[in-house]
């Protein structure tokens, strides 16, 4: 299988591995036998037409699917060698290692500062008030938002523009110092300029974090990612080096999708 070959090809060590994953919503199967490796400190893009299961698959990585009562996940997903669906695994700890940014920016109805400080607070990451402030400022800087909001940290997070809100959500995810950041179509509600800013940001973030991004836009996948996985009708059709997928796909379905014939 080409997924096994992936790590060999690129030389990057996988931080997350999924093997034979099936996801069901009630009786309906949304993901069918998907295996994929997520290489460390790279950006992996999950692409595919609407309803292909890419978001569902992404939400398996931090067990956000647990919140949907009818959703069942089968198969084997390992993070740093540990099966994350093991009953002994603490979901809270898992999600502090694997952050998430959602499709629609969802800042808390609190101040900008409080938005970023909330994660460190509940995980007791800050030793003092100064330290907390430090974490907040560092996170905002990493998310490229600090210069724009430094003089109004106590204003509501929802008063920011859409793109700023999404970067605030990224800062909030960064603040708990995760290893992986899952992004579920983070730019689908943003204009091209805000999108470009976030894409730039992602590029600089991959030094420190592993990013998995679900995107509708093939151009975005081509621009930001090193690895791409193409989903269609709940199956993983093809995955591998982004350049290879976009220039020389192995499967016909992939070829059809990237050339705009399906999806």
């Amino acid at each position: 299988m080409n997924t096994d070959a992936l790590s060999a090809e690129t030389g990057a060590k996988p931080i997350m591995t999924a093997r034979n994953v099936d996801v069901f919503y009630g009786k309906k199967q949304a993901i069918d036998n998907v295996s994929l490796d997520i290489p460390e400190n790279q950006i992996t893009a999950l692409i595919g037409p609407s309803g292909c299961g890419k978001s569902t698959f992404l939400r398996c990585f931090n067990r956000m699917n647990d919140t949907i009562q009818i959703c069942r996940v089968k198969g084997d997903i390992k993070f740093a060698g540990q099966d994350i669906y093991d009953p002994k695994v603490d979901v809270v700890a898992l999600r502090s290692r694997i952050g998430m940014v959602f499709q629609k920016a969802n800042p808390f109805p609190k101040s900008i500062f409080e938005n970023v400080a909330y994660g460190p607070k509940i995980h007791s990451l800050a030793e003092s008030k100064d330290h907390l402030e430090d974490i907040v400022i560092t996170s905002l800087k990493r998310a490229g938002l600090y210069d724009e909001v430094s003089d109004r940290l106590d204003e509501p997070g929802t008063s920011l523009s859409g793109g700023q809100q999404q970067r605030l959500c990224i800062a909030r995810a960064i603040a708990v110092d995760p290893q992986i950041i899952l992004m579920d179509e983070p730019c689908s509600a943003l204009d091209p300029i805000a999108t470009a800013i976030i894409e730039e940001l992602m590029d600089s973030m991959k030094e420190k974090y592993t990013i998995v991004i679900v995107t509708h836009s093939m151009q975005q996948a081509a621009r930001v990612s090193q690895q791409t996985a193409f989903f269609h009708l709940g199956e993983l059709v093809e995955s591998g080096d982004t350049q290879a997928i976009f220039t020389n796909p192995e499967k016909e379905r992939t070829q059809n999708y990237i050339s705009g014939r399906i999806g």
């Binding site: 956000m64 919140t67 809270v92 999600r95 959602f102 969802n106 800042p107 109805p109 994660g119 509940i122």
Partner: peptide, 9 residues
């Protein structure tokens, strides 16, 4: 709102 908090752990 719930997702935001749960996603943060």
């Amino acid at each position: 709102t719930r997702d935001a908090a749960l996603g943060l752990g």
